[in-house]
C-alpha cells in the first residue's frame, strides 16, 4: 500500500507499506521492518527498525497527530485532492477538479451547479473511515459540474465536481 505523508516541515514523503512482509519503504529507498504493538485499549506502540516507540495516535480526516516517544508530531496525509489544489496555485487551467481523497460514500452534497462559492465552503460530505469528512473548496469560484449523487460510493481520486475560477 502506498501513502504520501507531509511532515511537519512541509516535506512530502512516499511510504510503501507491505503488511505481508511487515516492511515499510521510505522515499523508495530505505526498507524498514515494522510492527504494531496492540493491547486491549488499542495501539500502544510501534516498532520501527530496531526501535520500540510508545505511541499515541489520533486522526482527524487527513490530519494525524502522534505522540511518539514523548514528542508530539503533526503530519498530514497527502492525497490527490490536496495535490491538486497545490498545483492550482502554480497557475494551471481555469477549471479545477475536486477529487475524493479516499474511498467512501457521498453522504450529502452541499452545493448546486452554477453556485458561487468561496474558499472554505463545504462542497460535500464524504463518509469514510468511520468519519464524516468535509470536502471543502480551497478557492473562490463557481461550481461548473457535479458528477456524483448523494449515496453514491466513490473511489479514491474519483472526480466529484468541477469548479470554474
Amino acid at each position: 500500500m502506498e501513502l504520501k505523508i507531509r511532515d511537519s516541515k512541509g516535506k512530502i514523503h512516499d511510504v510503501q507499506i507491505d503488511f505481508g512482509t511487515s516492511i515499510a519503504t521510505l522515499d523508495g529507498d530505505e526498507k524498514i521492518p515494522f510492527e504494531i504493538i496492540r493491547r486491549d485499549k488499542g495501539v500502544v506502540g510501534i516498532i520501527i527498525g530496531d526501535k520500540r516507540l510508545p505511541v499515541n495516535y489520533s486522526r482527524d480526516g487527513i490530519r494525524v497527530e502522534l505522540l511518539l516517544d514523548g514528542t508530539k508530531f503533526k503530519l498530514e496525509r497527502e492525497t490527490s485532492y490536496a495535490f491538486l489544489t497545490r498545483a492550482k496555485d502554480a497557475g494551471s487551467s481555469g477549471l479545477t477538479e475536486v477529487r475524493s481523497p479516499i474511498p467512501g460514500v457521498i453522504s450529502s452534497i452541499n452545493v448546486a451547479e452554477k453556485k458561487n462559492i468561496k474558499e472554505g465552503d463545504v462542497l460535500c460530505i464524504l463518509q469514510a473511515m468511520k468519519m464524516e469528512n468535509e470536502i471543502a473548496s480551497t478557492q473562490k469560484g463557481k461550481i461548473k459540474e457535479i458528477l456524483v449523487v448523494e449515496g453514491e460510493r466513490v473511489s479514491s481520486d474519483q472526480v466529484l465536481m468541477t469548479i470554474e475560477n
Partner: peptide, 17 residues
C-alpha cells in the same frame, strides 16, 4: 525522529485502511 514519525503515521493510517 522525523523519519520515524512519518513512518509511524503511514503505518497506522495504512493499518486503519
Amino acid at each position: 525522529e522525523n523519519k520515524q514519525a512519518v513512518l509511524a503515521a503511514a503505518i497506522l493510517l495504512a493499518d486503519e485502511e
